[in-house]
Nucleic acid binder design. Structure first.
Lengths: 203, 203
DNA sequence: GTCTATATTGCGATAGAC
DNA sequence: GTCTATCGCAATATAGAC
């Protein structure tokens, strides 16, 4: 029905605007009035649809985490050598911070850095699930004899995730002033993978 | 004079309490009343000494950045092989997130992730200075023939900083639920250095 | 220097008209 | 479903007494 379409529109417009604004200013830095105005929806609708500002925030976080989780699961399920999976993982991280939804990455990183009290469970839940999936990929490399065996897979996972994500966090914070980031994201990812794949090599 | 001592005490107590509270809850998440109460100082003193909440925040950030910058400069100035400098750098990061001032690290990381509008210049200034110093250490390794030459030093620096810092960011956000972090920080740092030093090796 | 009291502004949430 | 109006509260900042 057309009515349901309109409702969906208002809900989705709120979700989209909230994703952007929360990412830019953090949960405490945005008011429901700003959220409503940015979405072109009356701010009272936030309570109506999401039960309040916190409910909207949780919806934003969950949506973005689910999207990311799905991508990592798809990579883990591929029939491919481990190096190819690692490269695809890196590419998801890169796209995630650039072309696709640059702000969503910032949102998740922000919540990671200083979690809102009420969101801790959500963050911990998804973080551990993602870590487990990527760790499984590294484990595959160890079992295939391609990766060294003296590093626990979860440590190797966190090292890789850190190399890639931290660069983009920093780039976002310092871009346009520091000349560091003039070379390009793809070049950094390539360099990081060189270090990582050699560092994890078995020989 | 005793009077100056007392003034200094109030200023310092505010700075110390603000460092802790801003780190825990972020800039927007703390009120000047909370800050004053935690410091045992009347909240009106914040405007008196620091010109307002933002001025206090800037003082906190600058103080902590200077502290960190000094440590990295000291390492860069050492007469030591590059591997030793890299290990000391990692140790500073580790201590910075654990024993010494665990919350201050969170504060800086938080500001890095989503800078307060008014703090962007401060963050960019210190970030670029720190990046340049650590990059100089890596450059030394390249020139000494110990590190590979096909990775730009600034990329190698960001990769190292990312491996180490991201782990602690994640640990802080997920600790006590996810069993990932039961093994210990020093063990992770050792594993990360193994990957990094082998990955950056010249052979 | 310190503190009380307060001016002013903005917040999140909701009752009630339509 | 949507919007206006408003309640109750908490925020920062400051004037002015001491």
């Amino acid at each position: 029905m057309a009515n349901e379409k309109i409702i969906q529109d208002a809900k989705e417009k709120l979700l989209a605007a909230a994703t952007r604004l929360f990412a830019e200013k953090g949960f405490a830095g945005v008011s429901i009035r700003q959220l409503g105005e940015a979405a072109g929806v009356n701010s009272a609708m936030i309570s109506y649809y999401y039960g309040g500002k916190e409910g909207l925030y949780e919806a934003v976080l969950t949506t973005q985490y689910e999207r990311l989780l799905g991508k990592f699961e798809a990579i883990a399920d591929l029939k491919a050598p481990v190096e190819e999976k690692i490269r695809q993982y890196a590419e998801v991280i890169r796209l995630n911070h650039t072309a696709e939804q640059p702000l969503m990455a910032r949102l998740i990183q922000g919540e990671l850095t200083s979690p809102t009290a009420c969101m801790e469970k959500v963050v911990r839940n998804y973080t551990s699930r993602i870590a487990r999936i990527v760790s499984g990929i590294v484990q595959q490399g160890v079992e295939a004899g391609e990766f060294r065996q003296d590093i626990p897979p979860i440590f190797a996972t966190l090292a890789l995730a850190g190399m890639l994500n931290f660069y983009f966090i920093l780039r976002e914070a310092t871009r346009a002033i520091v000349p560091i980031f003039s070379v390009g994201d793809a070049e950094f990812v390539e360099a990081a993978l060189k270090i990582y794949l050699k560092g994890m090599g078995r020989d």
